[in-house]
Write a protein that binds this DNA or RNA. Structure first.
Lengths: 337, 337
DNA sequence: ATGGGTTGTCGAAGCGCTTCAACAGATGAT
DNA sequence: ATCATCTGTTGAAGCGCTTCGACAACCCAT
């Protein structure tokens, strides 16, 4: 391995000069800089990460804590992770992948060992066991998702309350008076992952304001589960003409089932999904949807966490505004035509 | 931050003794060990990662290089990543997440800086630009996937050739004489990701052996693409009664379309999928499938790479045998009933 | 008693970098 | 010509750990 000392010798300068060329923390004459950079290139030098971390007490690593569950909103998680990795690289950092499995202990370990300079937590629950730790280590951290008490923390998330409201508004404007919501699996609500509950609240609040009837049902992502949920919905509210689907995995089953029952989309019923755009355009009917801006969430999380690494303080709650894209799955309610 | 020196003072021993307690590289009396461990607990000591890496030239980090594309076989990628992270922790290592984006340069950087002790590469192409580098850095590395020339490298993968063969066998045994294969998107073949081509070869070879007619068509994962592909298949081979689907995203569309055309599964046509078990059981018909053992691939990759870190040499190609699970989507061919 | 072999512990060197204080030389103001 | 100021560079200290060689202290054969 090439060391900084060898580069210094090769360029005919001292080690500290090479270091300063690399970090830019002191002015270096153009001539010297050029010579050093040339040596670095010729020797193929890469600074040793451990030495650097030891001397500077900065590892240039961000830890990303992902849920271990592999059954829910996978594409979203994946896209966030990739956005985090990409954005981190743009800030000269790398990403350490932690699974939720280790729980709060992982936070202690990573912080205690100086492995990472900062952490990003995904899939934060309302009352998350990792939060107290995070608050009092004082390490830079950003949550993707919003806990019950975000005080002293930085959070990014899609504004799910507004998302719910937006879906209802869209359907209400089209004249739908009976709306059914296909929610996430019951387990998601039981875990108190805030986004599902906030979406529900947003839906309900706006429905009440607009005088629209709303039925909210959790639903697993399988065909069979969707079939059961749908028939129960139509039993209770035969006049349902609008659907909002939050569970990605339930989208295809729902469309299939509607088709099977001879209900045309969007002529007889309208469907609005809350899902990544890619999912919306790949479905059998191009779906009117509110996008989950996974990429942007990941990107903002890194930007916010980098700001904290650079020393900016203070709590902060950043809600990304929902955007609804009208595609082919929503139209005027039959009665209103 | 608590340091090793403080632990040593607290326990009334030298720093080296603490180090040996931690690493187990020298024998320590039970009494001393106990005292040191007690101090570690009391002080909440965590060894500093940078210092450790510098002194031992081992970072205890494995780099995992993931494709950046977010459109293909996402659940599989995700499951592999989580399995890698989990298994790595069991070996006292952490995982650094790299995206394919940086390309070969990432390999150079990670190896050069000693950031990671070893690398695991996913989504390896037949003629992958990262391989020459990997070979001559001599760093422990394991590929998930198999390149054209695996010499000098360690690879793990599902045996896709056998997988293809197995699918054909199953359908042939049930009496199907005309089989259509819904392959991956054309882009996958164009990138020369080996698995798709090997599956096709396996399918073709066994079909030829068994005297079965086989039509292989790449297909995008959208409903529209599947519709087009299906109608072309049925134009060319109206007698098709067996389907093998490799593109996960095409599964639901295919089942929907068959239903719409009044072709019952499995009475009229049989469908065999190549996909994670979870996808197979969530489809509208519980699918007969060959599982993609994502978890095991990730686990084995880590185990193999750890063996190399410990010094084991030699190239190695580990093919996981395919397992076909019969569920509700395959049955005797109509003509054979 | 003597010597050789264990076993448990320690001191010190050193891993490759960052950063601080110091300094030589050039620049500008007086 | 003189002093203060700035610029560019350097040497040395030290970050927290691992590891090597040394060395007591003890064991069991002789």
């Amino acid at each position: 391995m090439v060391t900084l000392a060898e580069v210094a010798r090769h360029a005919g300068v001292s080690a500290s000069t090479v270091s300063y060329v690399l970090s830019g923390k002191r002015s270096i004459s153009a001539a010297t800089r050029e010579r050093v950079e040339q040596s670095i290139r010729e020797l193929g030098y890469h600074p040793n990460a451990g030495a650097r971390a030891l001397a500077s007490s900065r590892s240039n690593i961000i830890a990303l804590m992902m849920p271990l569950r592999t059954d829910m909103y996978v594409p979203v998680m994946m896209e966030i992770a990739l956005a985090v990795a990409t954005t981190a690289r743009a800030h000269d950092h790398d990403v350490l992948l932690l699974t939720g499995e280790e729980g709060p202990e992982a936070v202690r370990r990573v912080v205690g060992s100086g492995l990472a300079d900062a952490m990003i937590l995904m899939d934060v629950e309302l009352d998350d066991a990792r939060l107290p730790l995070l608050r009092d280590t004082g390490r830079p951290a950003v949550l993707i998702g919003i806990p019950a008490d975000p005080s002293g923390l930085t959070c990014v998330d899609l504004d799910f309350t507004a998302t719910g409201a937006l879906c209802v508004e869209h359907l209400a404007e089209l004249g739908h008076r009976d709306i059914a919501v296909v929610g996430e699996a019951a387990a998601v609500y039981e875990r108190h992952t805030g986004f599902a509950e906030r979406t529900r609240d947003g839906l309900r609040a706006r429905a009440a304001e607009l005088g629209v009837r709303l039925l909210h049902r959790p639903c697993e992502g399988s065909y069979a589960a969707m079939a059961g949920t749908l028939s129960r919905i139509l039993d209770e509210r035969p006049g349902t003409t609008g659907f909002v689907v939050q569970n990605e995995a339930a989208i295809d089953p729902l469309l299939s089932l509607l088709r099977q029952q001879g209900r045309a989309v969007p002529e007889d019923v309208s469907v609005v999904a809350i899902c990544p755009d890619q999912v919306a355009v790949q479905a059998s009917v191009r779906l009117t949807s509110v996008a989950i801006p996974a990429h942007e969430m990941g990107r903002r999380a890194v930007e916010l966490v980098m700001a904290r690494v650079r020393g900016e303080r203070g709590e902060r709650l950043e809600l990304l505004p929902p955007r609804l894209t009208v595609r082919a799955s929503s139209g005027p309610a039959p009665a209103a035509r």
